[in-house]
Amino acid sequence: MSVVAITRYGGRLSAYVLGAASGAVKIIGVILVIATFNFILVHAAPGDPAQVIAGQSGAADETLLRQIRSAYGLDQPYLVQLASSLKKTLTLDLGYSYRQQRTVLSLLLERLPATLLLTGTAFILSLVFGTALGTIAGTRAGKWSDTFFTIVSLLLYALPVFWLGLMLVLLFSVQLNWLPPFGYVTVGVEMTTWQRIADIAWHMVLPTLSLAAVYLAIYARLMRSSIIEVKQQDFIKTARAKGVTESRIVMHHLLRNAILPVITVAGMQAGGVVGGAVVVETVFAWPGLGRLIYDAVLQRDYPVMQGIFLIMSIVVIGLNLLTEAVYRMVDPRISVRSVT
């Protein structure tokens, strides 16, 4: 016997409210766990935690170390330290970068927009084109266009993101000189707002392509197999038995049903996109959080690294919640969907 929930229709609005509430709880939970993890990591690192926090910069400077010890309460019991660091994190006090001589939060907020722009664009592009290619391949399963797209996505899927970026630079910037090899905007030129937007977009082409390629391949493969699976379901036969045209079957029955697993995976992959942004920003000197973490690694600037880890995690949860909301819009059965 089946235990299937039947949520009546009026429940839909309240489902949104519940979704928002559980999203907020999720974010706070993750913040707390990451803060705890960061705390443990600083103490697990080899050497004096104060030196870890100071980074390579001031490792030898005894006054700085004393200052850090008192600021972080490093002489107090672990639990007290943990509690105070959790409290600080919840109030978005992410500490101070002794290397950069600034609070970590201000540094992160300055870099966040560039990262959001890059990851957001790549995420949306890969989803749109990935599902489109997957649909073409899936509806033509077995034909040459399917084989072609399948091979292309298999190849794309095996490319290291950073290497793809470098190869694109080698081809389009070094050889052909079509596109700028790095940066966010042309420096030292007077521009109107529109010119500036166009300039940024121009700089974005290569980084976005490098980041989007792998995910495009993932979503295309997923969409293809999903389409093939949905194609065999009874309701497609019903539509055919109604006399509905093939193109309408694809648009009205196949697509919406087939895209559901893609949305789920896209939500789960959001962390991967954000991680990929780190290497892409490093390759293209894109002034976002990824580039910042690369510099922080070189300088062993732990407060910055940990701050980025926290902020990026929040961004990922944001993307998760977004995909969940989209799923809810597409699927009226949302309340029957289990966690797995």
């Binding site: 962390g271 990929g276 880890f309 995690s313």
Partner: peptide, 12 residues
């Protein structure tokens, strides 16, 4: 799974 894995790896 929510945490961006690559950044966690960098940090570790």
């Amino acid at each position: 799974q929510t945490i961006p894995g690559f950044i966690l790896a960098i940090l570790l």
